[in-house]
Design a protein around this nucleic acid. Structure first.
Lengths: 88, 88, 88, 88
DNA sequence: AACGCATAAGTAAGAC
DNA sequence: GTCTTACTTATGCGTT
């Protein structure tokens, strides 16, 4: 438990500083990766690709294949019942 | 321009108050609608419907049919080129 | 439980249609309110107000006062321990 | 421009595959960093820290100091005009 | 018309 | 198991 809430200098500041710094370092790494991802998409776009479709494809490939098919089947069932199967 | 940044009582406060109140009233209405929507889904769920599919269907029906089909075609094209057409 | 997954015409379609239509009506109401909100902000902006601050203020007023003050105190404590109290 | 939309095998598939794979590799790196971040917060929490305040502090430190102070001043001005300065 | 921002939606994790 | 809460992604909007 950090020694907070009392009068005088709050103390767990070394521990606090360590936490913040570790997070910030990791967030930097995350931001760098995110930036590279954007660059890849930007390059793809300049080569005529549709980035929205690319992003969608990446997200689909990340998901569990079985569950994806189940969800798709359920959606088609509902769409059929509503007479708008063409939407899915 | 609101009369701000000077010493003494900031003045556009009547105007400011009006803005805030109008927004808050409208946000209440929005929140009420959102709550009713959740209730409809909750009832649907208790009747055995899959709410995820219901939500997806609603969002599909909201979109422009033509654009939807174009996007779908593009995605399938990419998926086919990658040999994972079954995902879409 | 909707009568789905069998051969022949899926049947709970009346119930399904009712659900979808009720949701869509409510979403319309929600969208109308959201549009009015945007109009209020747009008008405020044209009168020289900073909409970001207005939005922030609205969101603050929506929250529980007590919890807000507690959170603020905790944040200030941490910021003080890090020597960046000026940020909060 | 990818050679798509014609009959026969769509061709830019090598290029497409390269894009997807590069993105997926980078997303992995991003996810790893995100996971480490969560671990740091989990450890902090087990040591008695309030993670919400920690996250808030990290996000504040990420922002431009000058702009932060400007925004804060504007918000306080509005809050004062509304008589709810205690919220900010 | 493309860019970034800001809101909203969907998703996944965690608490009760 | 449900329900909230936070994070991620997606979309729309305003700006340049």
């Amino acid at each position: 438990m950090p020694d907070v809430g009392h009068n005088g200098p709050p103390i767990a500041s070394d521990q606090l500083r360590s936490i913040i710094e570790r997070v910030e370092t990791l967030e930097d790494e995350k931001a760098v990766a995110a930036e590279y991802i954007n660059e890849v998409y930007a390059e793809a776009k300049s080569n005529g690709f549709d980035t929205k479709s690319l992003r969608k494809l990446v997200s689909l490939r990340k998901k569990d294949r079985t569950k994806l098919l189940e969800d798709k089947a359920m959606l088609e069932l509902y769409a059929a019942a509503l007479g708008c199967l063409d939407l899915v």
